[in-house]
Amino acid sequence: MQSTTLTLGPVLFNWPADRWRDFYFRIADEAPVDHVCIGEVVCSKRQVFFAEVLPQVIERLERGGKEVLLSSLALPTLKRETRHDAELLNGRHMVEVNDVSLLPSVAGRPHAIGPFVNIYNEGTLAFLASRGARLVALPPELPRSSIEAIASALPDVTVEVWAFGRTPLAISARCYHARVHGHSKDSCQFVCDRDADGMTVETLDHEPFLAVNGVQTLSYAFCNLLKEANDLVDTGVSSLRLSPHTCDMVAVAQLFRAVLDGQRDADEAFALSHDACPSATFANGFVHGAAGALYV
């Protein structure tokens, strides 16, 4: 049986180009991940920032033995946005589809489906697989029972589960970064670049709750399924997704790899993940069918 792969999802946040490039260079050289999805998923206005360094990042990742996938936007509404997504198909890389709008263009060729397309059951996955979906990231809110039903029904598809990082919870036409800072979306001044892991949203009782990333809302807690990793493999899951943050993602990837390979105890790895991401609060509720904010 093929070993479980690790996918590094796209950087969801607005990072300066040099940070973005250096992050991927280190991933290329040091992180034991198999697939790396790159590209802007959240806000098309950010695409220009790293366009120039994109080719060298791809080249470096491939030299490091990673398979590179190009991620499409989660909510394209403008013509230039759907055109940009369609142009991703012109290259030699597999594309990760994050919105239904791209499904007609990828039909009949191998492609990946990202966590922003709703695959809640095996009927939907069977349909998409028949059109060429090969690597499929399930919605992060799915419980283990659903994951198992989907993965076991389609063993030929690489089914992936959101395993590390702030969990995407919603996307909107409205930019909350701009709103909080008193700007309109069209003249946002790119204030989202102030929060490299998202802007913390607290309750009025000062309890950290959510994280805002432009038009996207994420969990405050970082999903961390190190302790569930091997059980998920037993359900038929064949890839785990790690979502980039400013903490030590190479260390995070090494911990997941070691747990999957049976070289490190999951409890011990979980304890070490606090050292890799010291400021993170961890949660695993969704996979246990509980509130996503909980650590069960």
Binding site: E141, T167, L169, A170, S172, F286, A291
Partner: peptide, 21 residues
């Protein structure tokens, strides 16, 4: 809905119960 419908898990993040499921 402020968020795009069908792509919002805010409710299940807090309660475990979501619009989609």
């Amino acid at each position: 809905c402020v968020m795009e419908e069908g792509r919002c898990s805010l409710s299940s993040y807090v309660t475990g119960r979501s619009p989609n499921m």
